[in-house]
Design a protein around this nucleic acid. Sequence first.
DNA 1: CTGAATTAACTGGGTAGCCCAATTATACAG
DNA 2: CTGTATAATTGGGCTACCCAGTTAATTCAG
Lengths: 238, 238
Amino acid sequence: MKNPGNSKAASAFKPVRSVRLYESIIEQIAALVHDGHLSVGDRFPTERDLQKTWGVSRPVLREAFRALEMQGIVESRPGGGRYLRAARIPHPDEFRELRLTPDRATLLHILQAREAIEVMAAGLAATNASRAQLAAIGRPLRMLETMTPTAYARNDVNRDFHSAIARASGNPVLEQGVLDLLHRFHEAGFRDLPKQRDWTGLQSDHQPVYDAIAAGDPKAAENAMKAHFKSVRERLGA
Amino acid sequence: MKNPGNSKAASAFKPVRSVRLYESIIEQIAALVHDGHLSVGDRFPTERDLQKTWGVSRPVLREAFRALEMQGIVESRPGGGRYLRAARIPHPDEFRELRLTPDRATLLHILQAREAIEVMAAGLAATNASRAQLAAIGRPLRMLETMTPTAYARNDVNRDFHSAIARASGNPVLEQGVLDLLHRFHEAGFRDLPKQRDWTGLQSDHQPVYDAIAAGDPKAAENAMKAHFKSVRERLGA
DNA sequence: CTGAATTAACTGGGTAGCCCAATTATACAG
DNA sequence: CTGTATAATTGGGCTACCCAGTTAATTCAG
């Protein structure tokens, strides 16, 4: 009957990453809110209703709403409908641009944003990190030494390293931001980038950051992180 | 058949809200990770597998995973399984609490995150701002001079000022981040914040930022923005 | 006519079973 | 051993159904 989501399947060589239906539904919801059709406190149309409007199945709708529900944006009352609780819907317009078009420019933009908050996170981590958190930061570092290419792709020590620092910062907002950006960064095109088998370079970047944090030196940690981002940027040819 | 989530419904007057299945599944997943059965990078058991293990239907499983997926904790590869991308799995309730409870601590956390990216945004704006964008930054500033309290509450020149700078940075990711944090900041701190009738103080903070950006001096812009955040922090008694 | 009680319709929660396309593992031919 | 078909597996998605609260309509006693 319906054959949704295949509209662009015609394009030849690059399936890249198929956008999930629930994501596009979230966009639709965001559009509802942004266009003023819905304000905080209002009730959403019913599942059965939206199902017809947007041409998706109920399960998909519920996936979208659940994802928003867990972030406190939507409240579901069994038998009573769904209600908008906050206007802050995550990355509405960005979904389109950033998730779908992994162009080089956005990658650099994400990197820049990462630098902004991760430098601060590193500084905070230097003063706030507990011993356990410090260990969590060091683990991916040691893991880097004995690793095969496939293991690298799977484990992704890089993401682990950065998120561990974010966590050690003690600021959950900062942490969430780092997580989000990391996610988008990798999604946007890490795999498309030249296979970097020069983890040695990666490690030589990460090590000073760890050392500074371990030493409890905020300023040094910030600078080490800055240096890391600079080197990444250069590696990307920017 | 199954009657899940009613364990705490016994209490008298407050039926509160029944625990959704997908939430308990998230807890199960968190337990998996916490107990060491799963580490970052590992692959999850298949949907069909977990379905049997936990006795829930596939849609419910997918709701749980989607919620985590959106936060970058899980990655789904069609045909290839699901992978754990971050070790930190938020407890559903805790997450909601964090987003909606406007406690003082989170307000400061948000402020800190804002500082991280807005300082960078200011620096970028100093080099990238077009003439029109510069005007957009200056507008709320001049508007501050001739304003009544009600007009202030409605127009929210503060938000305008900061978002204009973010826009002028030329980095959409950064801009989106600022917008998001601004939104959460105002949302979280609206009632707690003392009625700031000292816009004069606000203006004396904003002006130097504008001047530095207008002068095209990145370093000065960053410092001015830093100073602004410092003063805000002090005004909040931190 | 009014107001409480009873129904009926509606809404989200959850399940089961099916099909599809992408991925991964397997077997086989060279 | 290597590369290529082939089969099994996996997530993505849909349809259809049942259930328990909620809400609105309806009924009926006063």
